[in-house]
Amino acid sequence: MRQPNLSYVALFAAVVEAGGFRVAAHRRGLSASSVSDSIRRLEAELGVRLLNRTTRSVTPTEAGARLLERLRPALDEIDAAFNDLDDSTQRPVGTLRLSVPVPTARFVLPRLIPAFLERYPGVSVEVAMDNAHIDIVAAGYDAGVRYEESLAKDMIAVPIGPRRQRFVAAASPGYLQTHGTPAHPSDLLGHRLIGHRFETGKLGVWEFERAGTTIRVPPQGPLLSSSHDLEVGAALAGVGIIYTFEEHLRPALDRGELLPVLEDWWQAFEGPYLYYNDRRHMPSPLRAFVDFLKETAAT
């Protein structure tokens, strides 16, 4: 068999990782049609179909999956070789792709990314907001951000952002004047609660803690949403009581537009972590970002 074009092989791996031609093409700076043509040429050279193509998805065939499993270590070594060239000049180049939850994108990264980009002008950062627990490697990301209970054990984790966070409960002065202020989490059963539903469909159950006691309250009320902005806006308008990340509510609390509720019961938890695959060679943009986070945490 004639040796296949290695650039076609790399594009095949990129398409599988991205889950489609359009995303893979965007990441490589190519057109979707040229990527598709390259994969067809590779299939013709090998005499085997590597991808199942439908109008909605692109997935590897059984033969394609086997081939990619064998090729992945070699492709990683090729990437590592080019990263070593970057390291030799001490100037990391390339794109850092991150998958992060919405609170991290809104409240943590704006304090980090500008300084990181200023230090490393050869690096660009691509951030996707996703609250779901995805396979970052399969999805083509260099790293993700999650909380400790959601981290896979085969991942390396580095602290990012505040090390302690809280969920806080609050309501508008008008709501509390009309409906009263709960004195205990059990009192919430008689109140209008603004709930959050994750993209997975799971309902966010409220947890309150004090003196070793934990009380869980499934929020029931007039609004259930997957949008934090909508939930905060509803709380400001007096729709009901909200319980969410302190960062979402702190400005309104400081202005007196929302008042704290059940403050002695607010749940505190450990802050988020940047996590990435445990592999021998890291892309130079990721290595630079990890070093940057460690340096930032030490200052």
Score class of each variant (00 low, 15 high):
291 D>P: 15
295 E>C: 06
234 A>E: 04
193 L>R: 10
65 A>M: 04
215 I>N: 01
78 I>Q: 14
281 H>C: 12
173 P>A: 03
68 L>S: 01
3 Q>S: 13
132 A>M: 14
14 A>I: 05
168 V>P: 03
100 V>N: 08
279 R>C: 07
27 R>Q: 15
3 Q>I: 10
7 S>Y: 06
229 D>S: 08
194 I>L: 14
35 V>G: 04
240 G>T: 03
256 G>D: 03
63 A>L: 07
196 H>A: 08
97 R>M: 11
61 T>Q: 03
4 P>A: 08
239 V>G: 03
212 G>F: 00
168 V>A: 07
202 K>H: 09
55 T>Q: 13
93 V>S: 14
227 S>R: 11
286 L>I: 02
131 N>C: 13
32 A>S: 15
25 A>I: 01
105 A>P: 13
285 P>L: 11
218 P>A: 07
110 P>A: 15
177 Q>A: 09
74 A>N: 11
128 A>S: 14
7 S>P: 00
127 V>F: 07
82 F>D: 07
91 R>M: 12
118 E>Q: 14
219 P>S: 04
137 V>Y: 01
101 P>F: 14
253 L>N: 04
254 D>C: 06
28 R>K: 15
11 L>S: 00
175 Y>P: 02
29 G>H: 05
120 Y>K: 08
184 H>L: 05
217 V>P: 00
11 L>D: 00
288 A>Q: 10
69 E>M: 10
286 L>S: 01
91 R>T: 11
271 G>W: 07
133 H>V: 11
217 V>G: 05
146 R>A: 09
101 P>E: 09
200 T>G: 09
198 F>K: 11
197 R>S: 05
158 V>Q: 00
231 E>M: 13
146 R>C: 07
98 L>H: 02
153 K>E: 06
197 R>F: 14
72 R>H: 11
48 V>D: 04
207 E>P: 02
184 H>S: 06
152 A>G: 08
147 Y>F: 14
250 R>D: 07
216 R>S: 10
231 E>I: 06
114 P>A: 11
77 E>S: 12
225 S>V: 07
240 G>W: 03
196 H>C: 08
179 H>I: 03
9 V>N: 02
252 A>L: 05
171 A>P: 00
10 A>C: 12
55 T>S: 15
217 V>S: 01
169 A>T: 06
278 D>A: 13
195 G>N: 10
275 Y>S: 08
144 G>Y: 00
213 T>H: 10
63 A>C: 04
72 R>P: 04
152 A>M: 04
117 L>K: 13
110 P>Q: 13
149 E>I: 07
15 V>W: 02
197 R>K: 15
194 I>T: 05
33 S>G: 09
43 E>N: 04
271 G>L: 06
11 L>R: 01
3 Q>D: 09
118 E>M: 13
275 Y>I: 08
47 G>S: 08
129 M>R: 15
217 V>L: 06
70 R>K: 12
167 F>S: 01
